[in-house]
Design a binder for these strands. Structure first.
Lengths: 290, 290
DNA sequence: GGGAAATGTCTTATAAGGTAGACAGGTATC
DNA sequence: GATACCTGTCTACCTTATAAGACATTTCCC
């Protein structure tokens, strides 16, 4: 993993400045150093700096004022959809009306080894694979690849899938859904995903893999989801439990309909990570995509 | 998709392929598509694909056999550390002995507005900022930027921070830690983070922002963490609860010492998402990485 | 008003990255 | 053995990124 080559200075400057804006010391509304200063600081030409600034401007992170300077945009942090982790799925169920779905693919296939094993399928057993894109206000934010055992998949139609959440379809079909296991990672957008989510190839994505079982331990759904981190992120509240020496965090399970805090709070509560809209900006930045 | 400029294709292809090998559908031992296929798939020339493959070969991830093809190296899939989400922090506490820490930065600074607001600091109040990198077996996997109110930060030393988890230090200092709130997203590695984590610039990262409060609602820690997704990921088990019509998922709180499944299971349990590798090979995996 | 400093817009030149194609040689399959 | 497909290698050409300036225009401050 030797980095060898040293190209793409503009991108490097872009990422560097973006980091400084998002997490670093640069406050919203403050002025960046002049283009010549930045160029000198990083040892590149002014053209290169300008290219980086161009990208930042497209991202909406900066405001360039001729004669004055370049300023950090006030509202530079776009609010992503926030999914409460203890409630991910019903969250989507509730969103069913506010979001729309595009069904990109629907077929019965021989699943990959990983999927077959996760669902507990025997060799040669087929699965229904669907690829969907969810949009909110017309803007795509998630790319979902689901696998369902064939015998379960046939209980609903392609049209059903395009209009209802998959989990709802399963339960409508009498499938009892009891347990699930999921893991969260990050990855890059490949060509097809990038196109479906209106992103550049190589943009960062949140990835979630989930397997859902019925009470008998039979896998009923395998989901591989990719989310645009600027439009979707996971959130959870935790409470400290356990005796000293064996303390740990437990997630707070909220009622499915989001309610205000039951607890009193002095300064800033867990809910108010993004506190009252002062004339300033807030901490919990979300990254933009290239 | 405003593509504008699109440089550094080789590196991008490299990262995408690497992602597919490490987390995606490409099984060890399986053959990659031909160089021409890859070139067509990503819309680049064969030379560019070869450059990416060259780097992958240097990384030891692939094995190129003239006449046959390019194959995924058998031992290429590194098992990432899996953090149970309901237990993230104590997980780190337990890991305290197995991992090492490099303290990159330690200072008292005027925090950014976002951090100040999250911690409930008044104007002008300073915070201790530390930047640490955690390594496991000498390999870095996380980049941690923490802010602690100055009056709390002074209760431990710089050396303490380099040797003990921050949360442990806080509790040792008598701080009662009760609630936390965190959100998870994804981003790209900037120059400094890339170097600290031994990554290429532009590699995908898991990002976690957490704020911890004491019982009075006073913020005691603000954490901004970046994780290498190939070495660290979040995992959680969920159970379905609630009456029909208001069903939702609840996280399963496990004992802090990881125990085996209490439940019987027929086919595949939640633990075995990545089951035994069979001697078979899966040929064409289209989807991008996990 | 004048001047300093900032961005916006050019130009010219060089370096680096990427494209297109051809060809050699290996490997597997029928 | 014939064939198809693969990697390895090379050449020539094109496009893009970067550098180093010059110059105009705007804004702000004295």
């Amino acid at each position: 993993m030797v980095d060898a080559v040293e190209p793409l200075k503009a991108r490097r400057i872009y990422l560097l400045l973006r980091e400084r804006i998002l997490n670093g010391g640069l406050e919203p509304g403050s002025r960046l150093p002049g283009e010549l200063s930045i160029a000198a600081e990083y040892g590149v030409s002014r053209v290169t700096v300008r290219r980086a600034l161009d990208t930042l401007a497209i991202d909406g992170l900066i405001d360039r004022r001729p004669g004055s300077g370049t300023f950090v945009q006030e509202n530079s942090s776009v609010q992503p959809i926030v999914a409460d982790l203890s409630n991910v799925l019903s969250h989507l169920v509730e969103m069913g009306r506010r979001t729309s779905v595009r069904l990109l693919s629907f077929a019965y296939v021989n699943p990959s080894e990983g999927v077959a094993a996760a669902l507990g399928l025997g060799p040669g057993e087929r699965a229904q694979r669907s690829i969907r894109v969810r949009l909110i206000d017309g803007a795509p934010f998630s790319y979902l690849v689901t696998h369902v055992p064939e015998r379960i998949g046939v209980t609903y139609s392609e049209a059903d899938l395009a209009s209802m959440p998959l989990l709802g379809l399963l339960e409508r079909s009498g499938i009892v859904v009891e347990e699930a296991s999921q893991s969260i990672g990050a990855t890059l957008a490949g060509p097809d995903v990038a196109e479906a989510l209106a992103l550049e190839i190589g943009s960062p994505l949140l990835s979630l893999t989930r397997v859902v079982w019925d009470p008998s331990g039979q896998g009923v759904e395998h989901l591989h989801a990719l989310y645009r981190p600027d439009r979707y992120s996971f959130h959870m509240d935790l409470v400290r439990t356990g005796a000293v020496g064996a303390r740990r965090w437990n997630p707070v399970a909220r009622p499915s309909t989001a309610k205000p805090e039951p607890k009193k709070r002095k300064a800033e509560g867990p809910k108010s990570l993004k506190p009252k809209p002062r004339p300033v900006r807030v901490s919990n930045q979300r990254r933009t995509s290239t």
